[in-house]
Amino acid sequence: MDLPRPHERPTAFDRMLTPVHRWIWSDTDRRVQKLLRFGETETDGGRDILRAAEVTSDPLLRRLYLEHAIDEFRHGVLFRHRAAELLRASQTGSNTGFQGDWLAPGGHGLDDLQVDGESDQNMLAFLHLSEKAAASRFSVYRDVMQHDLPTRAIFEEILHDETFHMNYTLTQLARVEPRLHKRHLWRARLSRLWKSYLRLATGIAAVLGSILLTIQYFVLLPPFAWLAKRAARREHFGWTKVAPGRNDSLDRQY
């Protein structure tokens, strides 16, 4: 096997999680769901990068972003096709089961990035770090995919593209901001950290909210549910007359 190129080596954190990833990818259903989700993330990322190509005033960046976006769209297709192949082979359909997706998807770290309002410098710094993070994670996925060579080949191919994406974003950042490009990278790192925290916080808040609402549902709602069901039984099918004057006031929200 070829030695991994420097940018394809996983970070220590990703290496630590290798057993977890091995467990996740060992099951076909989970693999299908992961691949479908990756397909969506890559396509969404591609759209953001395409938008960056449309809004930048730098002709070289426009061409590079466009090339990058086309790669991302192609990755999305690769993931979707592979998921479809696995689905076809499994014959059982996919059982979604545990998804671990209560966190908002991080994707390329672009989910909260308003591409239209970002400078080229910020965009390049974001992209560079996102691609780097994706390459690290994808190299772990490639390594744990010994039992599924076609999926492994997809990660291999995508890793090749990610290396290009990492290279050009760094080179271009240094070109458009020769003096302060490192500062931009640090700002982007902090921003990614902040967004990760926000995703974690909103994820936890959403889970807690769901738990509280579910408790309320079973504790407070039964009598109201009984009343609603009784009212529903009395409701007639068919036309309901619209009373004259019902819509006269536009001030009401109800």
Binding site: T214, P222, A225, L227, Q253
Partner: peptide, 26 residues
């Protein structure tokens, strides 16, 4: 009218009790 819509969603959730327990929080 947003509150009228809220009324519909809440009423339908109540009518579907207890099958709607997953839908309600969302």
């Amino acid at each position: 009218r947003p509150m009228l819509k809220f009324d519909r969603v809440l009423t339908c959730t109540l009518r579907a009790f207890p099958e709607s327990w997953r839908t309600f929080p969302k």
